[in-house]
Amino acid sequence: MELINFSTDAITSEEEVRELVGTPHEYVVKKSIPVLDEHCKRFIEMSPLYFLSTSNAEGQCDVSPKGDFPCGIQILNNKQLVIPDRPGNRRVDSIINILSNPHIGLLFLIPGLEEVLRINGRATIIKKPELLNNMSLNGKPPLLGIGVDIEECFIHCSRALKKSKVWNTDSWPNTEDLPSWLDIFHAALEHNGVEVKR
């Protein structure tokens, strides 16, 4: 397989980007606020699914889906919230990234709603029992939490979810011909030289 050299005739400056796409309307720029207002708080409280974006000090990125019961995130005030780190596969990619680079992005979804809430800020890995004990699930508090100091919040337009028809079950593809998650998992292990007993 021959790789494409993406750097050939690539865009390398914001000026070049702006020449092609133009500038955003004033309303689009000024919809961003540095605090959680009541609308943002309510959006987070109703969201059972969100995505956490992090990168390490070298700029290697990761986006991790997080599912929790609505109101699973603790909103402390209009500038801070805490995300519980529920037990999982122990990779803790996001946690490790935050240790070397605190900048994070969050994307919140509400089932059936085509708009999303975006939040950017700085994160700290916390273990304060007085905060984590309030976030128990099935009687178990998280061992760690992600404290977020909020820098930017804004509602994102519905174009992506509307065009993808993600909430329209009639448009969902038939997944019977797709490999199972276990098939994909085993294939990745074998790619890395692990012998898998089937």
Rank of each mutant, 00 (worst) to 15 (best):
N101G: 04
A188L: 13
P142E: 02
M1W: 11
K197P: 00
K31F: 04
C157Y: 01
I98L: 05
D85I: 15
I146S: 00
F6R: 08
K197S: 13
G22R: 05
K30E: 10
N97F: 03
S164L: 11
A123G: 06
T8H: 10
K66F: 11
L137W: 13
E2V: 13
N133Q: 14
A57Q: 09
A57C: 05
P34R: 11
R90K: 15
D177V: 09
P24I: 14
S47F: 09
I126H: 03
V35R: 02
L99N: 08
C153R: 05
I98F: 05
P87D: 08
D37C: 06
A160P: 04
S164Y: 06
P84S: 05
D183N: 12
T8N: 08
W167F: 10
I126A: 00
E115I: 12
P141A: 08
I104D: 09
A10D: 01
L144K: 15
V116D: 04
G105T: 04
T23V: 09
M1G: 11
I104N: 08
K79F: 09
I73M: 14
F185P: 02
L99A: 09
E130F: 13
L76N: 07
P129K: 15
I96C: 03
H191I: 06
R118V: 09
E114Y: 11
I73P: 01
V17A: 05
K66W: 10
I11D: 00
L49S: 10
L36W: 04
H191R: 13
E151K: 07
G139Y: 13
S13F: 00
C157V: 04
H103V: 04
G22N: 03
G67L: 06
N5F: 06
E115Q: 14
I75E: 07
D170H: 05
F6I: 02
L144V: 14
D9W: 01
S32Y: 15
S136K: 14
S158W: 00
R86Y: 15
G22F: 02
H25I: 15
